[in-house]
């Protein structure tokens, strides 16, 4: 508790380029950028594969690769390839990390829609894209949102790696704290990351309330 008071009570931690607000914004910036790019890739791809049934292998490969891939290793690799000084070393690993949960859940969500329902949609005279957007997607939405949420939380937690390549973010508090044995800083940084992850979780639950039809919401 003392450590927390030391960290959050110190007014020096609340201003300047090293302060909590700046670090938080940096952290959010990397996370949001990586998450958005990943969502823009994975949601449409997952929908397309789920709807057509073609390319399912890609989903399986992505799901397994995600488990095997070391984020830090990828970070180092991108630094070696692209050099320090750009945001690429942090964005690329985060995007790679963020894609699989979205892709897999979007795909599974669409595949999981009752065959009778799909059939009824075509039988009423909906065309392929209408079936996808008006029937399959709204019904699969809880799972699609779950994928987005898992991905966002992972990105927010993992964006701490940005500090390894001198790119700021909340990871700075942790890494610098470890280096200087300033444990209050380590713990303060970790608490901030955890709080951010919780906020993301909460945000998605709210989104769920707003965009998912009560007819398909999982908790009725």
């Amino acid at each position: 508790m003392n450590w927390l008071a030391d960290f959050f009570g110190d007014s020096a931690h609340w201003s300047g380029p090293d302060g909590i607000p700046v670090r938080l914004l940096e952290h959010l910036g990397y996370s949001a950028a990586a998450f958005l790019v990943a969502a823009l890739i994975a949601v449409p791809l997952g929908m397309l594969i789920g709807h057509t049934g073609r390319g399912a292998l890609l989903v399986v490969v992505a799901a397994n690769a995600a488990r095997a891939l070391p984020t830090l290793g990828l970070l180092v690799l991108v630094v070696l390839l692209a050099g320090v000084g750009t945001v690429l070393p942090v964005l690329v690993p985060l995007i790679v990390l963020a894609v699989p949960p979205i892709l897999v859940n979007t795909y599974e969500g669409l595949r999981g829609v009752d065959a009778d329902l799909r059939d009824a949609a075509y039988g009423m005279g909906l065309r392929g894209p209408q079936v996808l957007f008006r029937t399959l997607t709204p019904v699969a939405l809880p799972l699609i949102l779950l994928g987005l949420r898992l991905s966002a939380i992972q990105v927010v937690s993992t964006a701490t790696v940005a500090a390894f390549v001198g790119l700021g973010g909340l990871g700075r508090f942790i890494i610098d704290g470890l280096a200087t044995k300033a444990y209050s800083s380590v713990i303060g940084g970790a608490v901030l990351v955890a709080a951010l992850a919780l906020a993301v979780q909460f945000g998605f639950l709210l989104l769920d309330r707003v965009v998912v039809s009560p007819g398909v919401r999982q908790t009725r």
Binding site: D114, A120, V139
Partner: peptide
């Protein structure tokens, strides 16, 4: 199974 659209 009627095949009603559950979200509508």
């Amino acid at each position: 199974q009627a095949g009603l659209f559950p979200h509508r």
